[in-house]
Design a protein around this nucleic acid. Sequence first.
DNA 1: ATGTAC
Length: 476
Amino acid sequence: MDETYFSRHTEFAWEIAPHGAMRVPAIIYADAALIRAMDDKVYEQICNVATLPGIVKAAYAMPDAHWGYGFPIGGVAAFDPEEGGVVSAGGVGFDVSCGVRCLHTGLKTEDILAVQEILADSLFNQIPAGLGSTGAIHLNSAEMDAMLLGGADWAVNQGYGNAADLERIEEGGQMRGACPDCVSAHAKQRQHDEMGTLGSGNHYLEVQKVAQIFDTPTAQAFGIQEQDVVISIHCGSRGLGHQIGTEFLRKMVTAAPQYGITLPDRELACAPINSPLGQEYLGAMRAAINCALANRQILTHLTRQAFSHFFPDAQLSLLYDVSHNTCKVETHLVDGNTRELYVHRKGATRAFGPGHPDLTATLRAAGQPVLIGGSMGTCSYILAGTEQREALAFSSACHGAGRAMSRHQAKKNWRGRKIMDDLAARGILIRSPSLRGVAEEAPDAYKNVSSVVNTADQAGLARKITCLEPLICIKG
DNA sequence: ATGTAC
């Protein structure tokens, strides 16, 4: 993108003044190199978001932002229902509540190296991965509704994991206000056999070592030391979330004129929060959030089973679970006033600072762990929310490296087999049902995660705590 | 991201 599009607020904040139908400014957090490399669609899309009714303060893009459906991926926007604010299916994204959780293992790198190949094979055998993959769990209608209401809490009650896991999940593992009746039969049917499955695309399960610590006291508060082994699971709400997104997007496009909403791009389809359709979507989306939380909880159970075979004494405890495709009601201070806002984060992670009342007691002093997944074969990061910078983007940070290239282009540039061989030579074992999927996910098809994270840190969105390097990656 | 689709 051309730097002259912006007035540069600080070294890491680039502002677009309101023009045309924009109600508020748009702000992109990035360094100069990321801005130059960012595709022009982010500019267009973030300006479009700024035109939506009831938007508060500004439309934001994170350093990993790239072209998405309607809203950019890496976008944050908050709306006030009292001012005609809207909720948008495209502003949440199709993979509702896609997110990352990170587990401690209590193991060290050398423990994994001793069994690396067979552990990789075992995880690959026991974690269903890939497009259309199904699991061993099949939910009847009553169980489906209970899952959509209960989330990870439901999963724990079914025997997948333990109660201690729940306090390390956003919303305590259960999103309130879910409405299973707002979820279509078709969406439920698509999820019937997909609980406890990883999915495809950028989803993965990684065994990682803590390679570097940048903030020792906070790392200690998170229970992390160098050379510790952790496991990160990145996945979402599978077919159910996708179906909900598809259906409500269509409904919102149709209903927009009757709500007097003019859309600069039909992909921005939305409905007033205070409308039947808006409420119906919020109920369905919250059910999909619970689906994703339950899914990651079941995958955690499967991972524990696989590990127990090799390490019978290992206790896999949950460090934290974040969702990065959501719309959540949160209280924020805006120009000195406390307001209840509907915060859309699409490819953006919540990043509550120290002292936030929604954080569990054991994490409140340190701030929320912000889990940033890298691309395949590259580092991931753990950051922490910052209190003083809450105002920057409604307590939000980036969510990953962010694509730099389309899947189509990536398939033309790389071969999956070659990528797997190159990574194996560096001690990183990839297991995937799809070589084409591996090519689409080539590390160089993504932005440099380290520069994205450094920018998030320097911009004050969140603080860098540790860097994780992959040892095993089960790729969807 | 997703049973590349009514």
